[in-house]
């Protein structure tokens, strides 16, 4: 049996982005994957990446900007070291996501879409993380925390401050 490791699908570097640019420019519909690649590499989509892509793929930069702002995944500003996504989906909503959000805001001193001054945390909201059975849920970087209480939030944030 072939053993595939998670590292085969790990995060990209800027070199990978440049390679993707070269490889994918002629593929049909490569704009979104290229933007995703840029975001994976830089953590956000820098203005210069828009121009690179525009030149290589032959799509005007204004149109690319239109695509970026259409999708909630894309960001034009850099993210903090840890990204906290709070689920505001239905299951989480009825199980008290608002209280969790309030606790997070108290703990971090920022609102949704903001980054802390020390650049440690960015708080984002998502519509559902697909873990509704353990709601309310947050995801920090790629790890999901479920069945949250306000007390747990304090602990979890503290843990992440150390790293």
């Amino acid at each position: 049996m072939t053993e595939l490791k998670k590292s085969d699908f790990e995060k990209k570097t800027i070199v990978d982005f440049k390679r993707d640019l070269i490889n994918k420019r002629k593929q049909h519909g490569s704009l979104i994957p290229l933007l995703q690649s840029a975001q994976d590499s830089y953590g956000y989509i820098p203005e210069k990446a828009i121009y690179y892509i525009s030149e290589l793929v032959g799509i005007p930069s204004a149109e690319i900007y239109g695509v970026i702002t259409f999708y909630s995944q894309f960001r034009l500003k850099p993210l903090g070291k840890h990204v906290i996504r709070i689920c505001e989906g239905t299951a989480c909503h009825v199980n008290g996501a608002k209280t969790i959000l309030r606790a997070l805001q108290n703990e971090l001193g920022i609102s949704i879409e903001e980054t802390t001054d020390d650049g440690f945390f960015t708080l984002l909201s998502v519509a559902c993380l697909g873990c509704c059975s353990i709601s309310p849920v947050i995801m920090i970087d790629e790890k999901v925390y479920g069945k949250l209480t306000t007390n747990m939030i304090k602990k979890i944030i503290k843990e992440h401050k150390k790293t």
């Binding site: 299951a91 519509a127 697909g130 873990c131 059975s133």
Partner: peptide
Amino acid sequence: EGDPGAFMDRS
């Protein structure tokens, strides 16, 4: 799977 509150497809 956009319905917020559904996770059948993910599972």
